[in-house]
Nucleic acid binder design. Sequence first.
DNA 1: ATTAGGG
DNA 2: CCCTAAT
Length: 264
Amino acid sequence: MGNQKQKWTTEEEEALRAGVAKHGTGKWKNILKDPDFALSLSQRSNIDLKDKWRNMGISTAAHSSKEKIRIPRVKAITAGPLTNGQNSASASLIDDDKDGKTAPRYNAMIFEALTAIKDSNGADISAILNFIERRHEVPQNFRRSLSSKLRRLVLQGKLEKVQNCYKIKRPAMLGTKTPTPKQKDIRSRPPQNSGFAITRETVEEAARTTARKVAEAENKSSVAAEAVREAERITKMAEENELMLQFVKEIYDQCSRGEVLLLA
DNA sequence: ATTAGGG
DNA sequence: CCCTAAT
């Protein structure tokens, strides 16, 4: 049956780029072993990485001749046909990067950092900033952007601020189509696995699906340049999918430690 | 066992 | 993607 041409998601391409940037070309095995990219590239082999890199164009900084129209993102639309009124939804996503080049993907980084830190008291701005700087290239005025974003996330109820530290608030998940994850009991291991044990592959598949959903949403948004309303909807959807991805990562951590989770 | 290159 | 030669 359909040996599906496992299409490379943007997430995978992104991971590959980052991996090459960090380790250098030809260190495919190292990239694959790196836990950062292992999550995204778990389904790929070192050879796959090499092939994909060859098909991508071997330039480390490939923006000279043919700038591919990739990841145009919603920004083009918000600055486009509209008179630039108060689009609180769309404006809130990009609000504070005047680089024009920096992607509105920082929210994901914030959750990434907070998830990794896992401090019971949360993390302050400096800790989050430090983590993100170590992980991604970031503009110099990023601290100001970060602080704005953090404040906004708190107001949105996605983060919780205690004293000077920020912590991830329990995501209420999607309001419409989420079967509600019930509860995940990790400590009380049932004597017999009568339920459905989530295997490594299941979680990875879920993560990949979510990532693909985000990618699709991004691509869709470029097509929907005319329908601003639709674009806003998709933008929000992408944001929620990022939350979902973060949640899946959480589960993946627990599974990696040999815990068994149950689906209700 | 991994990588580079041709198919 | 698969296969093969070279390290």
